[in-house]
């Protein structure tokens, strides 16, 4: 075997091993495509901080949480054995397209833009960052019931989770909605003092929950 051939085979083997290591060993998680929309998970608000903000179930109803991911939390509202609705809060940072539908919305609920999608879904964009959605299931919910459910979420608490409101963090490459839609119209009167004191608590909590899960 010629000397060159041996060198060639040796180099090929090394290159193969390196490539294999890169694709199959733990380096994999460094490659793009691991997260939704290639946005780093630390940029997205964790779903566990949404859970407390869901509406309190009324008598005879039950709220069962089904999914809790980075930037998403979902629960089923059940009456007896029947599922009445899917309630969810999501961080729109990973789904910029979902924000654009609120641009043309004329309706508002507690001063946040409101959109109806099809005959069973209603969505609300809170603080230009979080989408709250109610989807009727089974026999369905009418418009009035869905809007009542949306209003029953702890919307001020949700708005306070927006990292853009914290002085330390920098809002990351998001174009702003027109005035009056990006910001609540009314809440100028009562500024965020009560929530401002709560913000660190949320963050600490969400981080504490996060680390083992991530």
């Amino acid at each position: 075997m010629s000397r060159n051939l041996r060198w060639g085979i040796g180099l090929l083997l090394i290159a193969g091993l390196l490539l294999g290591a890169f694709f199959f060993l733990p380096f994999r998680s460094w490659l793009p495509g691991g997260t939704v929309g290639d946005i780093a998970t630390r940029e997205v608000v964790n779903g566990s901080s949404f859970n407390r903000l869901f509406p309190r179930p009324q008598a005879g109803e039950d709220l069962v949480f089904t999914q809790e991911k980075r930037g998403f939390s979902q629960a089923r509202l059940k009456r007896g054995d029947e599922v009445k609705a899917l309630l969810s809060i999501s961080d729109v940072v990973t789904a910029p397209a979902s924000r654009s539908k609120f641009l043309h919305s004329s309706e508002q609920l507690q001063s946040w833009p409101l959109v109806d999608q099809g005959s069973q879904a209603s969505a609300l964009l809170v603080a230009d960052r979080f989408q709250v959605k109610v989807i009727g299931q089974g026999s369905g919910l009418d418009l009035q019931q869905r809007h009542e459910l949306l209003g029953a979420f702890d919307l001020p608490g949700l708005a306070a989770l927006n990292p853009a409101l914290k002085p330390a963090s920098k809002a990351r490459g998001r174009e702003a909605l027109p005035a009056g839609q990006g910001q609540p119209v009314r809440p100028k009167v009562r500024e965020r003092e009560p929530q401002a004191s709560r913000i660190p608590a949320f963050l600490n909590r969400s981080k504490a929950v996060l680390e083992p899960a991530a």
């Binding site: 999914q67 998403f72 979902q74 899917l86 999501s90 990973t94 789904a95 989408q131 989807i135």
Partner: peptide, 11 residues
């Protein structure tokens, strides 16, 4: 089903 439930909530 779970995936669609999430996707429907996020669009």
């Amino acid at each position: 089903r779970r995936l669609v439930e999430r996707a429907a909530a996020e669009i």
